[in-house]
Design a binder for these strands. Structure first.
Lengths: 190, 190, 190, 190
DNA sequence: TATGAATGAGAGTTCATTCAT
DNA sequence: GATGAATGAACTCTCATTCAT
């Protein structure tokens, strides 16, 4: 007699949520390479529990960022409708993507470095964000605001890389450089 | 009266060169964080030998890249003289900088991540490449080809980040994105 | 609601005890500077387990000797009550202290040499044994059995040093020399 | 045609002397366990040279202290003649022995710990100092100033141990404790 | 399910010792 | 004889991962 959500399941879900929250916090502090133990401690659970819910580090990283990724992706069609031009929509969307990235200490670096074990997250971004970005990019191309030779994936990788911040290159620098990159993408008005 | 370059010194120099070559190769394969042991093995020497020649990892990384860095820096004044415009000189120089970077697996990532223990290399680049880049940038600003709000350091960091390559974002992508960034920097002709 | 002493805790405690026993044994054989790996092997555990229970070598050394130190310290007040004279109490207590020391191969030497990383143990002895010794010494001074110019700490260091045994200077020699030292401390009866 | 002392031999002797002097200095600073390289550097020679002259560390330690040991031993008969009583001669001689020891950072500890590889020095002291001390002790026993149950070797080991100094137990403490020990050895006047 | 004790591979680093020149 | 570059064993410590309870 499987209850839809037994007490056990509820507890498990709560534990899972606690781990996710802890991981998110620790990732901000120490980056996505933080020791598993630190995450477990922050969540108030044993390391085994972390592994039960997220067998690989990538699973954890992916889960932590999935919600934000989905939100970011969902933004694209809305912006396309509401904005004055496709390019303006792209600009707004990229701003949101950058906001997502610059608060993720080390994520960009890990992705950029092709960190093995982050393929899942990579795949998630491919599946979710790339299409979102591509829809905007295609609209720009259709409107002749951006040249046709740029793939959404490459653009996102470039943006992701530009968002790798450090002591002497902060979020504001990252935002400026991404904005500059977009300006460079813009087709010179005929 | 020790000869200026005895057989021993020559041998030591050869060993040093072997370690450097091995380090360069290992850095390409595994990145600048590769275990010292791997470098020693590749060079066919004991770990102690690596430590003798390069007490810290930063010493090794710095030595591996110093020559190329110097060459790159020396390029700037020549380009400024020979090129049709400052912006064109900047473009050429950045191409050379990108060539340097894209062949250095993991270097950009390590620098971008603010890797402790790479301060030496960071400092070397600051001391050597930033002035070179700055001279070109200033000329561009003076010629009103580039806006005045961009520092050479920030530009180089951005370029460095864009050169972090991976399986799906290769050197060619990096080159394109850097070129696009430079286009974005270019002041719209009045 | 975790039981006060679950099976796991019991097992951990047993492991801890095994490590302590192994450490004690290895210390006797090789001295307190013995490699951590040797202790782990002797205990039949991994090195990580040793580090889990005793993060620093000093923690281990201290734990190994804490019980005996406490017992020794607790002896002082009782002896003071039961003995015919303070000096006699001091003699008995020093006998106990010597017994503690002569069975600790290398401990005296390590303490004597001011081994860094043994500050904890040093502090423990200072906090625990020195007051115990001082109480006896003060009683002796009050009874005019010992001169006032000797501190408990110095006396204990001297005793500790005299208990550094070796092939040709055994426990019995150490006991004799300590006894002789105490005789030398005794004030000549008026 | 072997010259008595060719240029080569002279040079070798000078080198040997330089190593000895350097070793003595380094031993004072860092103790007898100091790295061989430090000694070689201080002497301005290569490590190989140190090994050539002193194949084992014990050889070096022994050589460093041989002269002082001989001087100390030679003191005994003179003191016996000049002093008012055998016990007084013993006291003076022990003072000299203590002076020798307290300036030898770590020597006492190394000897006390039965450091393997210091057997040579141990043997040297046995052969040289023990007889010297024994002659004084025997005279004391003959004069009924000291009991017959103490061997010179044991006394010297005890004194050696008492001279292991540290941050909180300095040379002055060592001297006091040795003096106290000697008082304890003195036979109560009949 | 949750736990966290236990494991052990792996990385950094030091330094005694050898040996070709 | 002198040199010092080279070697590699030995040691410390960290942390991902497993598994018995």
């Amino acid at each position: 007699m499987p209850e839809t959500t037994g007490v056990r399941q509820q507890q498990a879900r709560r534990t899972r949520a606690a781990v996710l929250a802890a991981a998110a916090a620790v990732f901000v502090d120490q980056g996505v390479q933080a020791p598993v133990r630190d995450i477990a401690e922050r969540a108030g659970v044993g390391v085994g529990t972390v592994y039960r819910h997220f067998p690989t580090r990538a699973d954890l990283v992916t889960a932590v960022y999935r919600h934000q990724i989905d939100t970011c992706a969902a933004l694209a069609p809305r912006l396309l409708e509401e904005s004055a031009s496709p390019y303006s929509a792209l600009t707004c969307w990229v701003d949101a993507f950058v906001e997502f990235l610059v608060t993720k200490h080390g994520l960009g670096a890990a992705l950029g470095a092709g960190d093995p074990g982050l393929e899942n997250l990579h795949a998630l971004m491919l599946d979710t964000l790339v299409p979102a970005c591509a829809s905007l990019l295609e609209a720009c191309v259709a409107a002749d605001e951006v040249g046709p030779d740029l793939t959404a994936y490459t653009l996102m990788r470039a943006i992701g890389n530009l968002c790798i911040t450090g002591p002497d290159y902060d979020r504001s620098d990252a935002r400026n450089m991404v904005a500059t990159l977009l300006v460079g993408c813009r087709r010179a008005a005929a």
